[in-house]
């Protein structure tokens, strides 16, 4: 018997968050689109009431705006419930999930660092991966990034900035 997404759960989601648009890609991959303001409540509902596990969040720079996908998984049935949201590029802000979900800490720091999204309410939004000498305003995963790292000169003696 193959376990898969439950209809009851999707019905409950539709009832509580009527604006969610649901796309079922395959029996175990469900994508849900929601507006930016509702993401926090929706994620909280999934984590606290439905005991879903946050696997990771992906940030994608698209033509329409910065798309963030929170990949939640329900391990009992092995289904991925993905929350998709789009943030306009002129206002890169979204509410942080870290206050109730410690696992989001590093994930949000990484997205902030590589894509420049500000997570409001995050306790420690410092760069996670890049070097101390890296320019904080350079976000390499953005579409407008044009190999600016080649301009950063390195001091051959100390390894820092020239």
């Amino acid at each position: 018997m193959k376990k898969e997404y439950s209809k009851e759960m999707l019905a409950e989601i539709c009832e509580k968050f009527p604006e969610v648009s649901i796309k079922i890609h395959s029996p175990r991959r469900v994508y849900m689109r929601i507006s930016r303001d509702k993401v926090y409540d929706f994620a909280k509902f999934l984590f606290e009431e439905k005991q879903l596990r946050l696997s990771i969040a992906t940030g994608i720079d698209t033509r329409d705006g910065m798309e963030i996908i929170y990949h939640f998984t329900l391990d009992e049935v092995g289904t991925y419930y993905n929350i998709k949201t789009v943030i306009p590029k002129d206002d890169l802000k979204i509410k942080s999930l870290t206050p109730f979900l410690p696992a989001a800490n590093w994930i949000e720091r990484e997205i902030h660092e590589l894509l420049g999204v500000d997570f409001i309410g995050h306790p420690n939004l410092k760069p996670l991966l890049t070097a101390e000498a890296w320019h904080a305003d350079l976000q390499p995963l953005r579409r407008d990034y044009a190999d600016e790292h080649k301009e950063i000169k390195i001091d051959k003696k100390t390894g820092g900035l020239a």
Partner: peptide, 10 residues
Amino acid sequence: LNRKNLPRVL
């Protein structure tokens, strides 16, 4: 080598 570990390697 990457930017973060170069100073340490040196």
